[in-house]
């Protein structure tokens, strides 16, 4: 985007919208951007977003809670992994392409190398009895973790008696999980219906 304009003012990047009103906010350098995302990715087991909020809002004071929520809403709106979107958008706003690259490499570089190492170990040793035993336990626990995530997300729909939204969730669940229909087909039907319901209910 306007990367050229950014590079001329590297010391004073364009402040995020509310920075002027919050003089105690810190504007990270490119290196700090990399390190911040590196830190949350390496401490983020089972999802990184909760760590991102604490690190960026409380520890490093890069943004206010409102700014974080705003940014997060945008990331949920966009397709693709939320935290990846967050790294790109925050990086772009500060330093253009270089900012996005610093944040993204910090976020994905180290764990991708780890994953490749783990994948190689699995391909080579995965069938050894010792590994099989350990993986049987790990897989059963991972299933419990995913069920907990699913229940935590579904809970508000049940508690607030959002029956139409609950119906959308149940039909999607049945089509994908039970009938194992193709995701593209299911989303092409369910997303327009669900968005239309949301539009109709807005007031």
């Amino acid at each position: 985007m306007s990367d050229g304009a950014d590079s001329s003012s590297l010391a004073r990047p364009r402040p995020p919208s509310a920075a002027a009103a919050h003089p105690d906010l810190v504007i990270p350098t490119l290196g700090e951007l990399f390190l911040g995302f590196f830190k949350i990715t390496m401490s983020g087991f089972g999802g990184v977003l909760a760590f991102a909020r604490r690190e960026f809002v409380i520890t490093r004071r890069w943004m206010t809670p409102d700014e974080f929520n705003d940014l997060f809403a945008l990331c949920q709106f966009l397709p693709g992994p939320n935290i990846v979107n967050l790294s790109i958008i925050y990086g772009v706003r500060l330093y253009g392409v270089r900012g996005a690259a610093a944040a993204l490499v910090g976020l994905l570089g180290p764990p991708v190398l780890l994953m490749i190492g783990a994948g190689m170990a699995y391909t080579r040793y995965g069938e050894l009895p010792l590994f099989r035993n350990g993986l049987t336990g790990l897989a059963a626990a991972a299933a419990g973790l995913l069920i907990a995530t699913a229940v935590q997300m579904a809970e508000p729909l049940v508690r607030k008696e959002r029956s139409l939204q609950l119906a959308v969730a149940i039909v999607t669940f049945a089509a994908i999980g039970v009938l194992e229909w193709p995701m593209l087909t299911v989303l092409l039907v369910m997303v327009p219906i669900s968005v239309a319901l949301a539009w109709w209910r807005r007031a």
């Binding site: 609950l166 959308v168 969730a169 369910m190």
Partner: peptide, 17 residues
């Protein structure tokens, strides 16, 4: 759009589980 995506994504995550 954002509100409409929520129940769909909940259904998907339940299917994953």
């Amino acid at each position: 759009i954002q509100a409409g995506l929520v129940p769909v994504s909940i259904g998907l995550i339940c299917a994953t589980a």
